[in-house]
Structures are given as structure tokens and as C-alpha cells.
Amino acid sequence: MAAGHGVAVVPRDAELTTQQAAGPLDVSRPFLIGLLRAGEIEYRTVGTHRRIAMTSLHDYLGRDDQRRRDAADELTQLGQEMGLAYALR
């Protein structure tokens, strides 16, 4: 908020449409559907519509963040082993 970005408050027990769930992930709806089909995010169907629980979306974000951190740590370790120096700017 201090940086001027908007904030949305969503109850943890809310169910989102695929369009609504794609927003917080900053991905397209078709990409999100691919994640759902791959089993990356739990969802349920209501008729022909998919509904994603906010808790499922939050769980996915946590797992994805951890995967990114692990990959960065691995790259850092490999760089150190190879004797590469990194300059922080």
C-alpha cells in the first residue's frame, strides 16, 4: 500500500473462479487451467465451472515460492563451486 499498489482483502474460505484466481498469480486464465489440470492447484467443479479455494491458491503460492528459493540457492551453490563471482548492484 505504501508503494501505491492496490490491496484486495479476500476471506480464506472464499472460492474463486478461474479468472479471479489467475489475477493474484499474475498468469493468464489458460495458464492457470493448465496448472489445475496438472494437479498443481486443487479445485472443484460446479457443473462445468471450476472453483478454486483461496486456501488452495495460497498453498500453491507457498510451494512455488519455496521452489524458486531452492532453485536460487542451488544456482548460488553451483556458482560458488565453479569459482564464479557475483557482483551485487
Results as ranks from 00 to 15, higher is better:
8 A>H: 07
50 R>G: 15
26 D>V: 01
7 V>E: 06
45 T>S: 14
21 A>T: 03
10 V>Q: 06
67 R>H: 12
56 S>A: 07
41 I>G: 13
89 R>P: 13
8 A>N: 07
35 L>M: 14
63 R>I: 12
32 L>D: 06
30 P>H: 00
78 L>R: 06
11 P>Q: 15
48 T>R: 12
64 D>W: 10
4 G>L: 13
58 H>W: 01
61 L>W: 05
28 S>P: 05
67 R>I: 15
58 H>A: 13
2 A>M: 08
34 G>V: 08
78 L>T: 05
5 H>Y: 15
11 P>M: 10
78 L>C: 01
41 I>V: 07
9 V>W: 04
8 A>R: 10
74 E>R: 06
66 Q>D: 14
6 G>A: 11
88 L>N: 03
6 G>I: 08
17 T>R: 00
76 T>D: 10
18 T>C: 11
72 A>F: 12
23 G>H: 02
79 G>R: 12
50 R>V: 09
54 M>E: 13
61 L>D: 05
66 Q>M: 14
38 A>R: 04
78 L>K: 05
82 M>C: 06
80 Q>E: 04
53 A>L: 03
33 I>M: 09
43 Y>F: 09
87 A>V: 13
63 R>D: 15
17 T>S: 07
44 R>S: 13
56 S>L: 00
31 F>C: 12
20 Q>A: 04
34 G>M: 07
53 A>S: 06
4 G>Y: 07
84 L>T: 06
68 R>P: 15
76 T>E: 04
78 L>S: 02
72 A>T: 13
87 A>T: 12
81 E>P: 03
41 I>W: 00
4 G>R: 15
37 R>E: 15
76 T>W: 08
65 D>Q: 08
5 H>S: 13
1 M>Y: 10
89 R>A: 02
75 L>T: 03
34 G>E: 11
56 S>E: 08
24 P>W: 00
42 E>H: 10
3 A>G: 12
3 A>V: 08
65 D>E: 06
62 G>I: 14
37 R>I: 08
19 Q>S: 02
18 T>E: 09
80 Q>P: 12
34 G>Q: 12
16 L>W: 00
24 P>F: 00
4 G>K: 11
4 G>W: 05
54 M>Q: 09
52 I>F: 04
59 D>I: 01
9 V>G: 06
87 A>D: 13
64 D>I: 09
5 H>V: 14
52 I>N: 03
82 M>W: 07
68 R>A: 15
60 Y>F: 11
61 L>N: 03
14 A>Y: 11
40 E>M: 09
16 L>A: 08
